[in-house]
């Protein structure tokens, strides 16, 4: 039940997209987002959609998985679409109603923009393991260390958080089982009662999260962890030919988008 939640989870694979250096993919996602926000007319939206679909095919990610990830965002998407539909000036669809043709066009484009935005970032997390992702991030942000930004610590925290999400979900399941076994009621009863029954789960969950953090710290120290200074990696990141090709394609794509924006298409 709880375990079925997908949180931008990684789908292992061996496609060209999986093999790209995480730094390349991170840069490309930033490029993608900038490009997406240059889209004005239908032709440029079409170009971004095409690029996105191409990447999905290359990385063997099924549309089903993307839809699953989009589900929690449905509300925000619907709200944005409605607001745009009613609050754009222009020719009214039905006289007397504040719904305009321009609004309709805007809201369809907004939906497309949000969906593409989410899809693009999902493509990153679906094809890159959390470890590779934080490694790449750390190296990209590396120069910031010069101005005393604790980049290593920040990325370490990030990778630990990602690592422990499934563990915490499992833990919640276990605590619920233990309470159910002694008659706690999460299924029958009034909504209020069920909500109240959920409360006693939080306390042990927090306690165990802190205990875990403590144990992890001890485990790291007993293996002589002492921060980022002078640490080497088991897997060194290296740019390969395909990374350069991907980056050049990304640059071309971005340039193309700027040109299209210039002509307003």
């Amino acid at each position: 039940m709880l375990k079925d939640i997908t949180l931008g989870q990684f789908f292992p694979g061996n496609t060209i997209v999986h093999r790209l250096d995480p730094r390349t993919k991170l840069i490309l996602v930033v490029v993608y987002i900038i490009a997406l926000f240059q889209a004005k007319g239908w032709i440029s939206y079409g170009a971004v959609t095409l690029a996105t679909v191409l990447c999905m095919i290359l990385s063997h990610i099924r549309p089903k998985n993307i839809f699953k990830g989009l589900k929690p965002m449905l509300f925000i998407i619907a709200l944005t679409a409605l607001l745009n539909l009613f609050y754009t000036e222009g020719r009214e669809i039905i006289p007397g109603w504040h719904m305009t043709w321009e609004g309709l066009e805007r809201s369809v484009q907004m939906i497309l923009r949000i969906v593409l935005l989410i899809t693009g970032t999902f493509l990153l997390t679906y094809t890159t393991s959390p470890i590779a992702l934080t490694d790449g991030l750390e190296m990209l942000l590396g120069p910031l260390k010069k101005i005393k930004v604790p980049v290593h610590e920040m990325t370490l925290m990030m990778s630990m958080a990602l690592r422990f999400i499934p563990t915490l979900i499992e833990e919640t399941d276990k605590i619920m089982s233990a309470q159910k076994a002694r008659g706690a009621d999460f299924e029958t009863g009034k909504l209020m009662d069920r909500a109240k029954a959920l409360l006693p789960i939080l306390v042990p969950l927090f306690v165990s999260a802190f205990r875990r953090a403590d144990e992890l710290a001890v485990a790291m120290e007993s293996r002589c962890y002492h921060g980022g200074e002078g640490r080497t990696r088991m897997k060194t990141l290296r740019f390969a030919a395909h990374d350069w090709i991907a980056l050049i394609l990304g640059a071309l794509f971005l340039a193309g988008m700027f040109v299209m924006k210039r002509y307003g298409i």
Binding site: S177, A178, A181, G183, P200
Partner: peptide, 21 residues
């Protein structure tokens, strides 16, 4: 499913998973 819990008491294999108060 709920009522059977009063009839059948189960002590889990790992007690640390059973204590929460």
């Amino acid at each position: 499913r709920r009522d059977v819990k009063w009839q059948v008491g189960l002590v889990f294999q790992y007690p640390e998973y059973q204590l929460f108060e």
